[in-house]
């Protein structure tokens, strides 16, 4: 099992959209995926179902631990399960010890592994402090969505500096890649930002695929589904996340693992 966090300094860069759609794509590609919402805003739950607002979830687990199996929410896709954010305000009133968070996160990941999960995908709050820092440090990989606009891009050095600090502090988390999001193909400035970042950073640090800003993502949020489910047959933009999932499999070694297990498939015999 591998644990992957998404993280960014800036809010509103599309982390939750990425997490929901990426989790769906990975699950469709045969991995057992647990999507965990660690963001107090509970964006994952809000995006997918009204009922998750009242459910216990990640923050309750942070406070008292317990049986992960009782708080995981299944989806109609058997390979995809969700752990919603839970009742952050209630939990915050009770308070939790910062020092206990790493241990609880380790318990959480162990519980996921016992459930047979292949990939834990963790959506985080914007910024790199508090719980988000602990979440990123607990993960094997971090995906860094970067909005393709000047102000967001300027936070990249700060973000990398923070990750360098994590490594210096002994965290084993590795960067799966920087993923350009909300690219406006009709806006020269947005394209210029994307080009600059690609020119400055090594290619293996950047996802080849980027996520454009498209109305269909709004439509998916309104319907409470991944983009692939907005139409009977997945629309072209849903394939963007399949491409990202495939890249992620390679970048994290997941595909290697599967090849080791199954080898290549033959079309006929």
């Amino acid at each position: 099992m591998i644990a992957i966090a998404t993280a960014s300094q800036k809010g509103g860069v599309g982390k939750t959209t990425l997490c929901i759609n990426l989790a769906y794509s990975l699950a469709r590609r045969g991995w057992r995926v647990l999507l965990i919402d660690t963001d107090p805003q509970g964006g994952v739950g809000l995006s997918l179902a009204k009922s998750t607002k009242a459910r216990e979830g990640f923050h309750e687990f942070l406070i008292r631990g317990g049986d992960l199996n009782k708080i995981v929410v299944p989806t109609r896709l058997p390979e995809l399960e969700i752990l919603p954010a839970g009742q952050y305000d209630t939990c915050a009133r009770q308070g939790w010890s910062v020092h206990e968070v790493p241990g609880r996160l380790a318990d959480l990941l162990r519980g996921a592994e016992l459930r047979g999960v292949d990939v834990v995908l963790m959506d985080t709050a914007a910024g790199m402090n508090g719980t988000t820092e602990a979440v990123v440090k607990a993960c094997d990989f971090v995906v860094l969505p970067q909005q393709a606009e000047p102000l967001a891009i300027r936070s990249v050095p700060h973000l990398l500096e923070t990750l360098a600090r994590f490594r210096a502090e002994g965290a084993g988390v590795r960067v799966a890649g920087i993923l350009l999001t909300m690219v406006m193909r009709e806006q020269e400035m947005s394209l210029k930002v994307a080009r600059e970042l690609r020119e400055m950073l090594p290619s293996n640090l950047m996802f080849q695929q980027s996520i454009p800003r498209m109305p269909s993502f709004l439509e998916a949020s309104a319907l409470g589904v991944p983009v692939a489910l907005t139409k009977r047959n997945p629309p072209p933009e849903a394939l963007i996340f399949d491409q990202i999932a495939a890249e992620l499999e390679q970048r994290t070694g997941l595909s290697k693992q599967r090849e080791k297990e199954h080898g290549h498939a033959s079309l006929l015999d």
């Binding site: 000047p150 891009i153 300027r154 400035m189 600059e196 400055m200 640090l205």
Partner: peptide, 22 residues
């Protein structure tokens, strides 16, 4: 390379990348 948009110091970025990419 002109950096009118991102204002990122490429050298600093390189050094940071070296730290996070073993």
């Amino acid at each position: 390379m002109a950096m009118q948009v991102s204002w990122i110091d490429a050298d600093r970025l390189k050094a940071l990348v070296a730290q996070i990419m073993p």
